[in-house]
């Protein structure tokens, strides 16, 4: 989408690398050098084998971690209070806060009064079907509902850039599809902002993304960036089309070799993924 469109660049990553550990004997080269441009309003999905550093990359974009080399620039409106928000895979909504207070958390940290923050969160609570659970504690909710809380929390701060780190990975297949469809609808109808979405699922990447970025086995570098050839607005029925499966197979051919490299590395060293979690 970057080529051929006039949308300005929102995220520019140049030569980003990350190494973990100080001791040269055990240090791990987790990521890069990795380059990526993401345009304003673009939905980019990043796929790659386990441990390829895709989550590490996202955490660097979010500012949770610094790169070892290279840099990333994010372009944000000066007036933006919270330009970047992130949805995590798990363990990130607080059991000691009610659903509505979890959702208003980001605004409360910005100094918005509790009352106003809850009020501003209500829209997203309703949009994600959480209105009836506003006063419930997360532990009483199902996994799918909890991830909806996490998404509502991120959207409530009205970020310009939304980062999503395998948000549906812990859900069962049906629920996963339901949440994909909901996110697709929300993004296409009213939350059309820049998104970087990490996933293991090619199907998820194709349904949601304008573009799929395929990363290599560790240390993750760019294998290929492929535009998703399906017009918007998309509907969930896209999954049933023959072209959908053809495109998925095409991507799998790109990814397969990298997954095999990863498996060889696992067999050779016994090491699994980079432990970025």
């Amino acid at each position: 989408m970057v080529e051929g469109t006039s949308a300005p660049i929102k995220i520019a990553a140049r030569g980003v690398e990350r190494h973990f550990g100080a001791d040269p004997g055990t240090a791990v080269h987790a990521l890069g050098p990795f380059d990526l441009d993401v345009a304003e309003g673009e939905f980019v999905c990043v796929v790659g084998p386990s441990g390829c550093g895709k989550s590490t990359f996202l955490r660097i974009v979010a500012g949770l971690l610094r790169p070892s080399k290279g840099d990333i620039e994010l372009y944000a409106e000066a007036s933006s209070e919270t330009p970047v928000a992130m949805v995590f895979q798990d363990y990130s909504i607080y059991p000691w806060k009610t659903v509505e207070r979890n959702v208003s958390f980001g605004l409360e940290l910005r100094g918005v009064s509790k009352k106003e923050a809850v009020e501003r969160g209500r829209h997203w609570l309703e949009r994600l079907g959480l209105a009836d659970f506003a006063k419930a504690y997360p532990d009483t909710l199902s996994g799918g509902m909890r991830q909806r809380v996490s998404i509502a929390r991120a959207l409530t701060v009205e970020p310009e850039i939304l980062l999503m780190d395998e948000p549906f990975a812990a859900l069962d297949a049906q629920l996963r599809q339901v949440l994909q469809d909901e996110l697709l609808d929300i993004w296409q109808s009213e939350a059309r902002r820049t998104v970087v979405f990490i996933t293991h699922s090619l199907e998820e990447a194709i349904v949601l993304g304008d573009r799929v970025v395929v990363m290599s086995a560790r240390p993750g570098t760019l294998v290929q960036s492929v535009d998703v050839p399906f017009a918007r607005p998309r509907t969930p029925e896209l999954r049933a089309r023959a072209e959908f499966n053809d495109f998925k197979n095409e991507l799998w051919q790109l990814l397969k070799g990298e997954v095999e490299h990863y498996m060889e590395a696992v067999r050779a060293t016994g090491a699994t993924d980079g432990g970025a979690r």
């Binding site: 550990g21 070892s68 620039e73 409106e77």
Partner: peptide, 26 residues
């Protein structure tokens, strides 16, 4: 595309990432 004023947020290595060994020792 908007014409409102922009800010750039940079994510870049600090000394701790450039020299992890020295940082850990320090």
């Amino acid at each position: 595309m908007s014409d409102s004023p922009q800010v750039v947020l940079r994510r870049t290595a600090s000394d701790a990432e450039k020299n992890p060994g020295a940082t850990a020792r320090r």
